[in-house]
Amino acid sequence: MNIREFYTITENRPVARDVFKMRLAGNTAAFSRPGQFLNIALDGLFLRRPISVADYDEKGVWIYYKVVGEGTRRMSAMIPGETLDVLTGLGNGFDVTKSGVHPLVVGGGVGAPPLYRLTRELCGAGKAPHVILGFNTASDLFLVADFQAMGIPVTVATADGSAGVRGFVTDALRENELPYDYVYTCGPEPMLHALYDATNVSGQYSFEARMGCGFGACMGCSCKTKYGYKRICRDGPVLEKEEIVW
C-alpha cells in the first residue's frame, strides 16, 4: 500500500490567532476514519510534523495547525501551488459505531479539527451529537461556524469568558445538563483528564505525543495503558476511556 503522497497546497490562510487553515489536493485513498492524521515533511527539517485531518474527500484534505515552532512557522509561509511530501492515513481514528444516539463531542483549541469529520459522520449515522468547543479567548475561536452549519447544538467555552461560557469545557458541560451516552474528545491532556473525571460514560480520547516516525516503527511515542503498551501514532492516537492510564 502506498501512504506517501505529494499534496499540492490549494489554500493556506489564518483563521484565528496563530491558527491556519490549509487545504491540500492529492490522493486520499489511505484515509479510512475520522481522527486520523498526516505527517508532513518540510525542507531542512529532519522529522516530519504530524497534523490531524479535519476532513477529506476524494480530491484532498483539509487541516488546521497552530504556529508553535519552526515547522509550523515554515508551513504558515507556504503558498498555494507549493507541494508537500506527506504520509497519509496514519493512526487508528475514531469509531463512530461505539456511541449511542447522543454522543458528546468535546474539542479543546487545535484539538477541535479531527472532531469535524467525526461529527459529520455521527450525523450521517443518524445520531444527535452535542458539540462543546473550548478556547482560551475569543480571538482563538475557529471552526465554530462549520460545526453550527451541521444544524447541531454547539456550545463554546472560553477561559476568560470573552465568548460563550466562561471557564473550561467541563464548566460548559455542568451548566448545560446535557443528555449524553458517550464522549468523543481531542485536546490538551489536562482537558482530556478533566473530562475523564467529570463524565461517567465510556468514550474515545485522542492524544498528542512527540513522535519519531508516526507509523509505528520507532517506539518514540509508546504509552502505558491498562492493556499493555501502545504507540500513540499507530495504536492511537485514539484510546478507549477504559484503557487510559494517566
Partner: peptide
C-alpha cells in the same frame, strides 16, 4: 522492557536524537 519515559525523540539539524 517498557523503556524510557516520554519524550523520547528530539529533532536535530540533519538528524534526530532517540532515547527509546
Amino acid at each position: 522492557r517498557y523503556g524510557n519515559p516520554l519524550p523520547r525523540i528530539a529533532e536535530c539539524p540533519a538528524g534526530m536524537i532517540n532515547s527509546v
